[in-house]
């Protein structure tokens, strides 16, 4: 299996507090890896390290075989185009309309600035995928939490990434919207053949999406396995996530 992300002995501390104390992780093509762990344990730090938003103290992060520490700004930007990131709150640009939010990465990355029709087509298609075509000219302030996440997802998809990193995609959403987001994640994976790392505490999300699960505790991988292995585990810590 092709390894898209390979992390070895990743360590990161903040002001003397060790957050990650030696994490190993592998994401294979077509796979969904779910990261579990209590709040503040460093799951977001881990996925931010993957895209170079946070620099690790030590360890190796290889994405598409490239060590991100060896990449310059240009190399990192090229890599980032292949790795989408859905932030916890959607991170939709408040000062732009939904359309402008989606146009932003296209105009800055796809070098088709002058072809307005082509940009329009891409934006319409991305919004159709997330079922938000009606909101194209709305401002983010007019959108609900779920809609903002879907706009964030549409913006992530617009550059056709091969890997998507989801930071708690269903947190703070009602069960119906959560279900819609989960279905969207699965649909996107099927349609675009993406691989994902998903941070979630949502049991439905874990059950629906996980091929492989990693449980982080005290800065290390406490447990690792498939969904069925986790479901059958007698370990108290693991059971607490599935009860």
């Amino acid at each position: 299996m092709e390894k898209l992300i390979e992390i070895q002995d990743l360590q990161k501390s903040f002001t003397g507090r060790d957050v990650l104390k030696g994490i190993d992780l592998t994401l294979n093509r077509g796979e969904n890896v779910v990261l579990l762990g209590r709040s503040g344990i460093g799951k977001t730090v881990l996925i931010k390290c993957i895209v170079g938003l946070i620099l690790p103290d030590s360890g190796i992060i290889r994405v598409f075989g490239e060590n991100i520490e060896d990449l310059n700004d240009e190399g990192l930007n090229t890599l980032r185009k292949k790795v989408g990131f859905l932030f916890q709150g959607g991170a939709v640009y408040d000062s732009m309309t939904v359309r402008e939010n989606l146009e932003f990465p296209i105009k800055r990355n796809l070098k088709i600035k002058k072809n307005k029709d082509e940009i329009d087509n891409i934006v319409h298609k991305a919004l159709e995928n997330v079922g938000l075509l009606d909101a194209i000219d709305k401002m983010p302030s007019e959108l609900s939490g779920g809609m903002r996440k879907r706009v964030g997802l549409a913006r992530t998809l617009i550059l056709n990434p091969e890997i998507i990193l989801y930071d708690e995609p269903t947190t703070g959403l009602d069960p119906i919207t959560s279900k819609e987001i989960i279905e969207l994640i699965l649909e996107i994976q099927k349609k675009y053949n993406t691989s994902s790392i998903i941070i979630t505490h949502d049991i439905h999300c874990i059950r629906s999406t996980a091929n492989h699960i990693l449980l982080i505790k005290n800065g290390i991988i406490y447990a690792e396995g498939t969904l069925s292995e986790f479901m059958e585990s007698k370990d108290k810590e693991i059971k607490s996530y599935f009860s």
């Binding site: 916890q88 913006r155 550059l159």
Partner: peptide, 21 residues
């Protein structure tokens, strides 16, 4: 206030991830 709000809501991170400095 504007940049602070963008930082807190991870909009600056999102911009960086989408290949914009």
């Amino acid at each position: 206030a504007e940049l602070g709000s963008m930082r807190v809501t991870e909009q600056i991170d999102a911009m960086e991830v989408s290949g914009t400095n």
